[in-house]
Design a protein around this nucleic acid. Structure first.
Lengths: 224, 224
DNA sequence: GGCTTTATATGACTCGCATCATACACACAG
DNA sequence: CTGTGTGTATGATGCGAGTCATATAAAGCC
């Protein structure tokens, strides 16, 4: 299982230690939509994304969901709760065909005891996520939907955007966007349509291309 | 400076070490409304609440604020950013007459290097806050204002409520409540008035007493 | 190929809540 | 005691965005 050193915090471990981890870790190939674990389940493992993309999702009433985290390749997920032995607080749903790793929680706990740098890396990572959660709280509490959508598109372009002939391409559905910014599909589609017509974005099925990034930044700042 | 052992994660340190910390730590007495540090400032210190209450606040346009964290006695604040040497992401505002401690960031960094248990305690704490941030995100994204308010009152009763002849008393203004759940003062006041009339709460200036906790729980769950 | 499913699109209607305005009670300072 | 500020209260009004309905096009599937 090559590539464990690419995981956040695992780079500084010795090769022998990484071998041992690899031996205990299971590689799982998953298709879009697949649920790796559900909210409320006992956490027996720490997970990581090798390739692809995983969403941490909380299901609400009336079929409305909230995307709590977007987990890109190289990041752990379900880690903190597994270390503390608590049940998973949200569900992990595969957003595109992915390869994920599943490592026994007991091993992860042992590693954290033995390698302070690993725990430090996890702390750093969790802190960053707390910070971004705070920003999302501000965004949803203070800003209008179009501001939030513009902001989210810009965030996604940094996180999962692929450059393609001058524009940034995002692999994401309107439904997912809606669940990220706390609104409905219809509203997201309406705004996207409008922006498509005014040339801010170019959109297709499962895809949005950011054309006028500065225009989106203006909207995100509330200047439009 | 007595009481350092009451701080989250500092209990397991030896007495001599705590002496050293106390010697470098400054005790600050602050009145309600006082700003301990502002968003964007360089973080040169790790803070802790000895007595009283501190809010972490993000200021938005149009005078609307968001309360990101409510820091009760015994909790650190500004810790994670100070450890990483980043500027404070939000402002710390004293919510009621308080005594806070201010410890040099360099010392805090050294302590984290030396005492893995301290770092572990901070990780645990940050994880809890991330989890509660996620719950707030769901709440604000999916629920109506009255649900959010009921939920927030129940959360506050656990966190800062004082038992008083059968009811739980909260020291909080409508403005603060509004900033916690992402709405306006007027809306918060309206709902509080209604609930006061229907006997769910009993309210006064700077104060709300939870009378019918089960009724509030029903509202929080969306059953009303 | 034709059928079902999924994602996008758009209109009509409703309503929760923000906004603006005004009023009142109480705390505190001088 | 009297002014001034701060927190609470309540009404009128308007808009943003949710809800419901329907349509269309592309993707997948036998």
């Amino acid at each position: 299982m090559a590539g464990i050193e690419s995981l956040r915090g695992f780079r500084t471990l010795e090769a022998a230690e990484r071998e041992r981890i690899a031996a205990a870790t299971r590689e799982v190939r998953a298709t879009a939509g697949q649920v790796l674990f559900s909210a409320g389940q006992d956490s027996d493992a720490v997970w990581a994304v090798k390739e692809g993309l995983v969403h941490m999702i909380k299901h609400g009433p009336g079929g409305r969901d909230v995307v709590l985290e977007i987990v890109p390749p190289g990041d752990l997920f379900g880690a903190v709760v597994a270390l503390n032995g608590r049940p998973y607080p949200a569900s992990a749903v595969v957003a595109e065909p992915s390869v994920v790793w599943k490592m026994p929680a007991t091993l992860a706990r042992e590693l954290c005891q033995k390698h302070p740098t690993l725990r430090a890396a996890i702390l750093e990572h969790v802190s960053t996520r707390l910070h971004s959660a705070h920003e999302r709280l501000c965004s949803i509490a203070l800003e209008h939907v179009d501001q939030r959508l513009a902001r989210q598109l810009l965030v996604l372009s940094e996180k999962i955007g692929r450059r393609e002939n001058g524009t940034t391409l995002l692999h994401v559905t309107r439904q997912e966007l809606a669940d990220m910014i706390g609104t409905t599909v219809e509203t997201t589609i309406r705004i996207a349509s409008r922006w498509q017509q005014s040339g801010l974005i170019r959109s297709a099925r499962n895809e949005i291309a950011l054309v006028d990034v500065e225009g989106l930044e203006r909207i995100a700042k509330g200047e439009a």
